[in-house]
């Protein structure tokens, strides 16, 4: 482990954290509307996993997608502008928080029907194989998608046709308000659901960005060379509510539980590791904090000052003429 290797991971997680905290404020100010699902607490998974792939590898996500999009390298200004519904947003303001897409970075989108994007991920991987390329596909989804039919259809096809897709299950333990033990039969961990389809699977501590990255480096390398899918369960916790309309600890989680989980904050964990090993100083973190603050402030300013889409945009991009 060295400083130049770890600081970027912290920088990315911090950016996502601060970006989303400001998003929540902007939501309260009605600059952002609709559904806004925050990734706070889960940042180590996107950052650790995406750090293990190449720039031309594909990433596809569900509706809690800000972290994956930013980790894939999207410009925070264009992401924030999309949340604001502005013409300068990644998707010209037509997608919104749940449907971020950055095609030039092969960030293939956020999808808001639970389980529905897992078949798409297998399709991206199918195209890679068909065209004899060597990319991999990272498909992020919550544990709430695991019992869905579309997920299992995707697992089966990926295994059957040996497609280079890595299913990264972000197990934050609650499918909105339903705990996993009330949603999935015989739950101990989720890897057996993938193994049932003949997919190799492992569980990792999703709060530990280094553990996630280390595992993913091995997995990505296997998937890239061996032509096979893989399933990774990253155990995590959502510090905030399901969306902005759900308080951090509603009827389904106790304050004590949330407080206890917050002590496992992935940012704090990496910071402690780096401090203990003498790889970074308070001054470094102060500087990173300032940098993230400036980046997010610039994103908010950019979004705020950008125009809304013109009326003419309403009819654009329904069809390709």
């Amino acid at each position: 482990m060295d400083r130049d290797d770890l600081l970027p991971l912290y920088r990315q997680m911090l950016l996502i954290r601060r970006f989303e905290e400001r998003s929540a404020e902007m939501y309260a100010l009605a600059k952002i509307a609709g559904f806004l699902h925050l990734y706070i607490g889960e940042e180590a998974i996107a950052v650790g996993a995406i750090a293990a792939i190449r720039a031309d590898d594909y990433v596809i996500s569900a509706y809690r997608d800000h972290g994956h999009c930013l980790a894939k390298g999207s410009d925070p200004r264009h992401v924030m502008a999309e949340l604001f519904g502005k013409a300068t947003g990644l998707c010209k303001g037509k997608g919104g928080s749940m449907h971020l897409v950055d095609a030039k970075r092969n960030f293939m989108g956020g999808y808001a029907i639970v389980g529905g994007h897992l078949p798409l991920a297998t399709g991206l991987a199918f195209a890679v194989t068909y065209q004899k390329r060597d990319q991999v596909v990272l498909c992020f989804f919550g544990e709430g998608a695991v019992p869905s039919g579309q997920a299992h259809e995707a697992f089966n096809l990926a295994a059957l046709w040996k497609l280079p897709v890595i299913f990264v299950c972000e197990n934050n333990r609650y499918a909105m308000g339903t705990p996993i033990t009330r949603g999935i039969a015989l739950y101990s961990d989720l890897t057996d659901k993938a193994r049932a389809h003949g997919i190799q699977a492992e569980t990792v501590d999703g709060m530990d960005v280094l553990a996630v990255r280390t595992l993913m480096q091995t997995v990505v390398s296997k998937v890239r060379t061996d032509a096979q899918p893989y399933f990774v369960e990253a155990v995590t916790y959502r510090f905030m509510g399901h969306s902005m309309s759900d308080p951090a600890h509603g009827h389904y989680r106790t304050k004590e539980e949330v407080d206890a989980e917050r002590k496992k904050d992935p940012l704090v964990l990496l910071r402690q590791t780096m401090m203990q090993q003498g790889l970074a100083t308070e001054a470094d973190f102060k500087r990173l904090e300032q940098e993230a603050g400036e980046t997010v402030a610039a994103a908010v300013k950019f979004a705020d000052e950008s125009p809304f889409p013109a009326r003419a945009a309403l009819d654009e991009d329904v069809y390709i003429e």
Binding site: M108, P119, L120, G123, L124, A127, Y130
Partner: peptide, 9 residues
């Protein structure tokens, strides 16, 4: 869905 993903790629 696989076909949709393949078309997107």
């Amino acid at each position: 869905g696989l076909a949709v993903g393949a078309a997107m790629a």
